[in-house]
């Protein structure tokens, strides 16, 4: 099984970012970012506020255009001018505000903009069946696909939003703060979902401020500091003090050089 090999030898690099820069006028948001993502891997992207995490992810999702540097997807250099370009390369993103409609039901939200049709009409039966299958596959906990989104808890909404992104069959899924402001039990269900998505072979990039979440689901961490990627470490080599040190750039008796990961935490 390929999973038994060290990650580097599998040759399944999904995304490589090299020397990405982005300036807004005189403000240099990104000053040279390197990042790699492999199939089936959960990569934690951490850094203090203003480190450029969100800008970098917007670049990867096609919402923002970078100035310099190279994006390679499956080894092929690409350049995204719109979010649709990124979607065509099977890169999906779930923004913090989730982009759901409160008064529509779960199935309608999952299929918003691509409802199955029979003639000129929406095929609601097929839509609900497909939605139920997607949700059951990911073990998303909702009572019914007919439930209105507005009646769901924050965690359920988050999992529906992730399920929606997953239903586009992405190779890369970017999650921006998916566990912020959730109850403890709900954080668990979102983290479990992230693990299941990765197990399907999707490369997941997780942006979060909840460091304990990183240790739960991530294989590897990329640390950003003032617009640069400064560290890249396997989660197995870190503990929470070391990680805080990497983020805040306070001297620690550990590595200072970016290291390539040796193996996945599985």
């Amino acid at each position: 099984m390929a999973e038994d090999l060290p990650v580097d030898q599998r040759g399944d690099l999904l995304v490589e970012l090299a020397g990405i820069t982005k300036s807004y006028g005189p403000v240099k948001s990104l000053r040279g970012v390197d990042l790699t993502l492999r199939r089936g891997e959960v990569l934690g992207l951490v850094g203090d506020n203003g480190a450029g995490k969100s800008t970098l992810m917007k670049v990867l999702a096609g919402a923002v255009q970078h100035d310099d540097g190279e994006i390679r997807v499956h080894g092929k250099p690409v350049r995204f001018s719109t979010p649709a370009d990124a979607q065509a390369e099977k890169i999906g993103i779930v923004y913090q505000d989730l982009a759901l409609c409160d008064t529509l039901d779960v199935a309608s939200n999952l299929f918003l903009g691509r409802e199955p049709k029979r003639g000129p009409f929406i095929d609601r039966k097929a839509m609900h069946e497909q939605a139920a299958r997607i949700l059951a596959d990911l073990h998303v906990k909702v009572t019914s696909t007919h439930q209105e989104i507005g009646t769901l808890s924050g965690g359920q909404r988050q999992t529906v939003a992730i399920a929606r992104a997953v239903s586009f069959a992405p190779d890369v899924l970017i999650l921006d703060e998916p566990t912020a402001a959730l109850a403890v039990a709900e954080v668990e269900s979102v983290l479990r979902l992230i693990g299941e998505v990765a197990a399907q072979g999707v490369g997941v990039i997780l942006i979060t401020h909840r460091l304990q979440d990183l240790f739960r689901v991530c294989d590897r961490i990329t640390v950003m500091y003032e617009g640069q990627s400064v560290d890249d470490a396997a989660i197995a080599d870190l503990d929470i003090e070391k990680l805080v040190g990497l983020i805040t750039r306070t001297p620690q008796p550990t590595r200072t050089q970016p290291t390539r990961t040796e193996g996945s935490r599985a």
Binding site: L104, G113, F121
Partner: peptide, 28 residues
């Protein structure tokens, strides 16, 4: 009745009333 409850147009009208930005991001 048919237009509001059985077509994409109706679905998007409801969606726009709830969260226009979400519907826009869905490519509508």
């Amino acid at each position: 009745l048919v237009l509001l409850h059985a077509t994409r147009f109706g679905q998007y009208v409801i969606g726009i009333g709830a969260a226009a930005e979400s519907v826009r991001r869905a490519g509508v």
